[in-house]
């Protein structure tokens, strides 16, 4: 946005869907015996994320996260878990890349897959470059977790 430009309502960073995920996170909590555990961290702002996954064949049978940090990082984690639960790992990976393309490469939100309906709302975070890493933390952690699964 131009310095001094007017704020567009649609640009507002804290859209209701984000606040809803922040206040009522989906799949929040620890998992006792996950097949894969992965921890993600943003050292600069201290966001922390623990991701737990259980697989049935190539499907993500169960997913849960526990984290602390700002509303963007926590809402994004909630959206991610909701989007990829029950999907096969290849689809989950493709969605993570779509999301990152939107946040980092300028891919328009409209072009994202239907599973990312809620996650699209994070597009407004791009107006705050230092916060983009909060939004992508959960998705990066998922990609790392899926890489780990491949090695099991």
């Amino acid at each position: 946005m131009n310095p001094g430009g007017e704020v567009q309502f649609t640009d507002e960073i804290y859209r209701e869907v984000i606040l809803d995920h922040y206040r009522s996170p989906r799949h929040s909590g620890e998992m006792a015996d996950p097949d894969v555990f992965e921890a993600g961290i943003n050292p600069l702002c201290g966001d922390e994320l623990m991701l737990f996954l259980k697989f049935k064949g190539v499907a993500i049978a169960e997913i849960a996260f526990k984290g602390k940090g700002c509303s963007i990082s926590q809402a994004s984690a909630s959206m991610m878990t909701e989007a990829v639960q029950d999907l096969d790992v290849f689809r989950a990976e493709a969605l993570a890349r779509e999301f990152k393309d939107m946040m980092l490469e300028g891919r328009p939100a409209e072009s994202l897959s239907a599973e990312l309906e809620d996650a699209k709302s994070l597009e407004g975070v791009k107006r705050y470059p230092v916060r983009v890493k909060c939004a992508v933390l959960a998705w990066n952690t998922l990609l790392e977790a899926l890489k780990k699964r491949g090695k099991i």
Binding site: Y22, R23, P25, H27, S28, G29
Partner: peptide
Amino acid sequence: PTDRPAKPS
């Protein structure tokens, strides 16, 4: 938020 019980999707 993370201290609260998980809400199913």
